[in-house]
Amino acid sequence: MTSWRSLSRTKIVWPLIALGALLLLNLFFTPHFFRLEIKQGHLYGNLIDILKNVAPIMLLSIGMTLVIATHGIDISVGSVVAVSAGAVAILIGGDLAGHPKYPIAVAMIAALLVCTAAGMWNGMLVSRVRMQPIIATLILFVAGRGIAMVFTNAMVIWLYAKPFAILGQGYVLGIPFSIYIVAFVLLLTFIFTRRTAVGMFIEAVGINPTAARFSGINAKNILFWVYTFSGLCAGISGLIVCSTVMSADGNNAGNLYELDAILAVVLGGTSLNGGKFYLFGSIVGALIIQTLTTSIYAIGIPADVSPVVKAFVVWAVCLMQSERFRTRIVRVFVRKGLSA
């Protein structure tokens, strides 16, 4: 029992198996799923589509992983994505000739600063005001979309500044540019958490906050920065979302992304109860979700219906993590074993 648990919790094996199984299903039912074509020097196909669309969720899941590791949750990330998209869009401006109002780099940095501030707000509420994370982040969840819509004056802003499109639409060596951004952020996060004591402190706070405090760890600061980082990740994610469609739609940008991100983290092996976290697991989790969505689409089911499948995946994952469910299952098996 313990060995099964330790294996399932410490290894990246399970999410990889799930991803493999999903791809295998596609191999049987929709062989065209794996077809790759080269058009205009770029690779095209479902697999590339997955990579192209997965970046925003991956970025959110990186930040969310650390938040969940502290036994918290950040449900404001979807709204912050919209804020980021809205902020960058008004700063670049909808000039039809493609001349940005402010330099693109400045616009991007400003948007990221806004999102980092949003993260700090969450972090402050959780660590200083000591609100429950769900409630604390609920506030920006509600207000965030409003802020985004106020930025864009409730209109969809279309962008024509070509260079900005690279973020979400560019390719380098046949692979979407956004994937490089994810890799960069992932690498930095990995180094920052695993090559400093940050990761260990985060896990310590998530496993046993009292013991962490007694050991001299400044839990408040850890919490504050974790939420701040999640805000930053949401900001980067928002830039990519905006660049992919070259527009900012405060109403729909990042809609329901928070659940995708949470799901990715949980699928990746990080427990909602906090503690040990697995950054690469979350990345694989995000891939699973995107593959699922794309697969459903490939089978011919409208994309809008895919949440139904996701809902059942969430319930299944929750049940797997439930101690009570596991003991009940074990009991059923034991009973069967006895009668047989």
Partner: peptide, 21 residues
């Protein structure tokens, strides 16, 4: 199963939304 209401009903949100379509 002693599961968090937040997550379970969030999945319910997904389910109902998907079923609409």
């Amino acid at each position: 199963f002693d599961l968090p209401p937040f997550i379970i009903t969030l999945a319910g949100l997904y389910l109902a939304r998907g079923l609409c379509y």
